[in-house]
Design a protein around this nucleic acid. Structure first.
Length: 104
DNA sequence: AAAATGACGGTGT
DNA sequence: TACACCGCCATTT
C-alpha cells in the first residue's frame, strides 16, 4: 500500500470541489513536497483512479492546461472545466477566481 | 544501480 | 507575453 505522498496527492485531487482547480505545486505542497509538482503530474498521467480522480481539475502554476491523457486532450479538458463553472482567460484558467483553496 | 523521461516551477532572456 | 534553461521529485526502463 502507498499511504504516502502518492495517496495524499490522489486524495487531494478528489477533494477539489467542482468549479475550482488546483495546481500541481499546490497538491505537491499539501502532500508534503513542495518541489514534487513534477511527480504529481506523473501520478495524474498514470492515474489509476480514472473515474474516481478528477485529474482534469489540476492545472499548471500559471493556469495553463498541460497535458491530459483523457479524451479530447487539452481541448476537452478546457471545455470540461468551463462546463463546471471555471473561468478561463484565453487558454489559461483564471486562478485568481477559480483556484481551489484548501481552507480548513 | 544508473540513466532517461515527464500532465512542473521558477527565473532569465 | 512568449520562449528557453535549470532544478526538483518520483516512476520506468
Amino acid at each position: 500500500m502507498k499511504n504516502s505522498f502518492e495517496e495524499k496527492v490522489y486524495k487531494l485531487c478528489r477533494s477539489i470541489p467542482k468549479g475550482k482547480v488546483a495546481i500541481y505545486g499546490q497538491l505537491a505542497r499539501l502532500a508534503g513536497n513542495r518541489k514534487a509538482a513534477r511527480a504529481v503530474g506523473y501520478y495524474m498521467k498514470t492515474n489509476e483512479d480514472v473515474p474516481h480522480t478528477p485529474c482534469h481539475r489540476v492545472v499548471a502554476a500559471d493556469g495553463s492546461l498541460t497535458g491530459y491523457s483523457g479524451r479530447g486532450g487539452i481541448a476537452g479538458k478546457r471545455k470540461m472545466l468551463i462546463r463546471e463553472g471555471v473561468q478561463f482567460k484565453k487558454n489559461k484558467v483564471d486562478l485568481g477566481y477559480s483556484l481551489w483553496k484548501k481552507s480548513s
